[in-house]
């Protein structure tokens, strides 16, 4: 009886579990033009299939992080008034090194490297 039930349930559970789709790992993206972002502002860009946050701290200083909050997966944003990264979902804040300043996030944001080539801003994973 139990074996019979298990033989019905096993394929159903397997069916519900979505197949793993391995996507080609994205290591570098062009985030846009230098002139697209003013100093003390930020924008969300696509980094593969995940959002990343690009921040232009000053004329010459740029920062980029994974935009996925380490608390419950919301997408963070840059707040120019406090010069911090903020998650609207549960009020978590991070500094411009990605470290948690306040709120419930348990871990820092993953930081990416930013390089400016000509007038293009390039974001890449750190080695």
């Amino acid at each position: 009886m139990l074996a019979s039930i298990a033989s019905f349930l096993y394929p159903v559970l397997k069916f519900l579990n979505p197949p793993l789709i391995t996507e080609a790992a994205v290591n570098e993206v062009v985030a846009g033009k230098v002139q697209d972002l003013k100093p003390n502002s930020g924008k969300i860009i696509k980094f593969g299939n995940k959002p990343a946050l690009l921040v232009r701290v000053s004329d010459t200083e740029w920062k980029a992080f994974s935009a996925v909050c380490t608390h419950l997966n919301c997408t963070v944003q840059y707040r120019d008034s406090t010069e911090q990264i903020w998650c609207a979902c549960h009020n978590g804040t991070y500094d411009l090194n990605g470290k948690v300043v306040s709120g419930p996030p348990p871990n820092p944001l993953t930081e990416y490297a930013v390089n400016v080539r000509g007038d293009e801003v390039i974001i890449s994973r750190r080695a």
Binding site: I44, I45, A88
Partner: peptide, 10 residues
């Protein structure tokens, strides 16, 4: 929009 920040007041 999966590539927008979570809106304020969510």
């Amino acid at each position: 929009d999966p590539f927008a920040s979570a809106p304020k007041g969510i």
